[in-house]
Design a protein around this nucleic acid. Sequence first.
DNA 1: AATATCTGCAACCGCCGCACG
DNA 2: TCGTGCGGCGGTTGCAGATAT
Length: 323
Amino acid sequence: MGRSPSFERGLKKGPWTSEEDRKLVAYVEEHGHGSWRSLPIKAGLQRCGKSCRLRWTNYLRPDIKRGKFSLQEEETIIQLHALLGNRWSAIATHLPKRTDNEIKNYWNTNLKKRLTKMGIDPITHKSRTATDTNLSHMTQWENARLEAEARFVRGSTNVVSHFYQQIHCTSPPFMTNNKLAMSSLSLPCLDVLKAWQGINITSCKLSDLSGLQTPKDQTMPPMVNLIENVEPSSLYKDMITTEDHGMNSWEISKTSLFNTLECPQDKGTDDQNLFEVNDMIYQDDYLTEALTNHLVKDFEDDKSYWSNILDKVGNNSSFSTVF
DNA sequence: AATATCTGCAACCGCCGCACG
DNA sequence: TCGTGCGGCGGTTGCAGATAT
């Protein structure tokens, strides 16, 4: 049988007293929290372990910053929310000394309302007029697409930069004039994501797409196939036209992108989720994760793309993350 | 000054995934 | 393989203080 609820065991609920706080802090500072379940008894508290853990992580922990959120923090929350949705713990990892609960509260009571007032849907981060037309059922798709866009912007920017430097012995223009470039240059990421979006919008069968393997779960094409099967835009083709070892630069750039990612391969047992690329076996879940990490690792350095988004938030009437 | 309404936030609830026996 | 316990997460609630009427 399950455990009895805390109220049935005579445990206290509601706001914490300063005496309870003092006991909890004293215990954790001396012994560490260890097992939260056994902590209340050892610390002399009439609370359940869960309540103690929440009180500690959201309030008593010494490395917590309290008070008003800075503009920088607000921007970061909006950017990350556009990327990650309501994944508050993930967002919190990028805001030092802020808890997920605090960020969630701030979003719900402040930022969400502000975006709504500006005519921006706080779920999709798109203008109302765009979301009104359709597609509540596509919200999940859209979130995934946004996430993938951001992932791929990081990867492709690095790769394109790498090859441009090899060819021209100088940094590409979009690396030296980010704002202009990110809005005008058609990077391969956009082609990938347009393809992804196209699959979504037309609801065609994945098997209709030449070369696409069909995953066990057909609700979403595997990341590896999207990267593998999408052709570069004409602009990008013009920029990289050299041949090397029988592969054009587009092929090389994809290879390079794969090579920059560290994908653990020894964890999964589901063969349908494994893909071979350049003699390497990738598990698609991990490829997706690796791409995300690739993005997040350099997130702070990639201000241009997100300042572009925030500029659009500022000019809210035309804000849209759709290409 | 009294009352109603709004706002911010701490805390709780229910669910999920993982580890373990 | 299944059941159980635990930690973690996101959604929601309820209260206290602030503000409006």
